[in-house]
Structures are given as C-alpha cells and as structure tokens.
Design a protein around this nucleic acid. Sequence first.
DNA 1: ATGTCAATATTGACAGCGTCAACTTAATAG
DNA 2: CTATTAAGTTGACGCTGTCAATATTGACAT
Lengths: 203, 203
Amino acid sequence: MKMKQPFHHGSLKQALLDASGILLDQHGPDGVTIRAIARQVGVSHAAPVNHYKDRETLLTALATILFKDLLASVQEKLSNKNLPASTRVSVFAIVLFEYAMAYPNRYRLLWHTGLVNHNDPQLLDVMDQFYDACCAEIAGAGMCPERDVETVAIALWSMVHGYTDLRLTGMFEEKNDNVSGCPRLEAMLDMFLNQSHAKSPQE
Amino acid sequence: MKMKQPFHHGSLKQALLDASGILLDQHGPDGVTIRAIARQVGVSHAAPVNHYKDRETLLTALATILFKDLLASVQEKLSNKNLPASTRVSVFAIVLFEYAMAYPNRYRLLWHTGLVNHNDPQLLDVMDQFYDACCAEIAGAGMCPERDVETVAIALWSMVHGYTDLRLTGMFEEKNDNVSGCPRLEAMLDMFLNQSHAKSPQE
DNA sequence: ATGTCAATATTGACAGCGTCAACTTAATAG
DNA sequence: CTATTAAGTTGACGCTGTCAATATTGACAT
C-alpha cells in the first residue's frame, strides 16, 4: 500500500536547498540541475520555480549559505582569544584551503560565474563580512604599519584563493599534504607574514 | 545566383578553432557550443565531431592555443635583456593580469574545469613551460636565497591568479585602474618582491 | 459552514544542447 | 576504373531550463 504524498510539500524551499547541497557534493556544480533537484525531493520538474525563479537564483542562494558556513568556520576558530597574532591571520588561509580540500565542489560553486550571480546583495553581504573580518585581523595584529591594510588583505586572500583554485584544477600536486595540513601553504604563509611584519628573516 | 558550397570544407579543423575563439570573446564560455560553432562556420551541427570527438576536446584544444599565446606574450616581454631583475619577475604577473582584463572570457576558459580537461598532455605541457619559465626567472634573479624557489614561484602565481580571478568575478573593484596599469597589483608585487629579497623596508 | 482567493504543485510543451547511428559525398590510392 | 576511406549531412534520442495552462489545497473572510 502506497502512501499518497500530500500535494503541498510544506517546506519545499528548504528541501530544495538541502537536495542541492547533496547533489553538489556528489556530482559537482553541473549535476545540480533544476530537474535533478526536483527528482531528489520528489516533486515535479517545474515545482522549484515557485520558490526560485530560475536556476541561477537557486544556486546563488546555495552559494550564499555555503559562504556563510565558511565564514562561521573562520569566526569559530578565531573565537579562541589565546592565538598569537600571526596565526590569527593565517587562520583565514588555512580554513579556506581545508574547506576547499574537504568539499571541492562547494568551493568550486562559490566562484562559478556562469552559475552564481556574484552581484546578488545577500551574497555580496557575506563576502564583505569575510573581507572585513580579514582586514580587521590584519589591522588589529599591528601588521604592516607602513603598508595599506587593504593591499595586504587583498594580497593574502588572492594568494590563498589562487593557490586553492590552482590546486583544485590539479596543479602543484603535493605528496606531503596530510591531515595535519599543507606544508607548502604554510611555507607561503610564513613568507607572506614575515614580509608584512617587515622583519628580516636572518636575524 | 548562389554559389554552391563545396561538400568538403578543406580546413574545417582550423576554422572550428577560429570560430570558437570569436564566440568565446563575444558570448563567453557558455556561448561556445558545438552547434553554434558549426553555424558560425557554415557546416552541419554534427560536422565538428569528425575533428574533435566531443566539446571538451575542442575547448581543451582552444585553451591550449590561448595559453600558448599568453606564454608567448610573456616571453616576448622578457626578450628585452635590459630589464632589471625585479621587473623581470613582475612581468609574469602584469602580462597575465592585463591579458585577463583585455580578454576576460579567454582567461575564464583557461581555468574552467567543466569545459576544459586539465589533464590533457598538450595543455599540461604549455602550463609546465609557463611554470618553469617563472621558476627560472625567480632563480636567475638571485631572489630568495634562503627560500625554496618553488614556493616563491607558486606563491607568486597563486597571488596573481587569485587576484585576477577575484577581479573577474567583480570583487575589489578599482577606480584607479587605467591604461598604465593596476596600482593595486603593483603594490602587491612590490610587497611580494621586497619580501622575497628578505630586505628590511625601513633601512 | 461556506465560498473565494492566493499559494503551490502538476502537466505538457518548446527550443537548445551534446552525441550517436545511418547515410551521402567526394577525394584518393591501387 | 574501382575500392576504400575520410569528411559532411540528416535525423533521432535524452537531457536541460523555462513558460503557460491547469489542478489542488490551505487560509481566511463572510
């Protein structure tokens, strides 16, 4: 005997996001199609349009959630007030990189121009929070008094994002990566931080 | 009176690549579809399959050509033997960034995982050449004697690629960009190069 | 309780896509 | 001159996003 599904799902909007996340992890950004999401949830192929007017809108909402998660991870790590100033800055880099390695498809979606609308106000808001937090940490650590804080922050984010992105495409494969981290990234950060402190390394 | 087209195109393979480049510039990576290319060239929608077995193969060939162009630009700039050592290194960054600003869709295609096969031997070969040239320049300039050349090269490429990619998604919009360059990128490079020299800035 | 309305879901259609199989054309080798 | 084969065409299939038309339901006013 088959239970008849109720005509109205009740919380389809949330269910669509949940299913999208699962499909994203399993099949990558291209696997997150409107119809596949609808199949996953068990509704008709055109049901999602009632909650998101098109695919880009849905994926932008998903990306916003994922970026919030990423930001929350950073903030959680930074809530430890006993961290030395230099490690506080590198938390941004390490959390971001490890997030991308753990969930490559999620990180890919975040920056996938054709699928996500990077002018969306809500997404922009989260990104601004991320950037502002990064700037605050750099400024608060008393780094680079003679340099523009924004330049340092942009350089740091660029370096980490670039390295992460290149790694996700298969470049710079590292045998030394392990559970305790990525030695190459740490070497890059060490270089970056020593520079920003304007401290000569051979003292 | 209408000229009847010859049944065989003669040089369809090259024509497909040419048309793909035009479509890429005009409509972005998503606009470079097999059928649109065929229309542009004036052949049937299934003709391209005789020369490239699928869309990914065609776009990978296109990406390989574009990357060769980028490498050639760098090499052409570096053929000037009178450049100071520090500017020689920053040539990599500036050429890459300006290429991306001039041809955003081309740069996007280069790193578009779903469309391009980054395990393709020919594409890998060009990328290796680019990376090796970057390493050679860093090593040859006598930079960073106390640091791993590979780490410096990867850090540089990561920073520039990351900044470029983030700029292409609309982040860090700069009003001061102009024909003479990008002041922010130059500030980042200045920071990076001073660090690699391990020179204290307040001397 | 009853009727109405708006929200929500379904169905069916359309055009565009990549890809494949079957077929046609033409050029070339023997 | 013929056989072979490369190259191009046609038509089909299943997939996609999106839209219009329809059906169902819950909620709310009467």
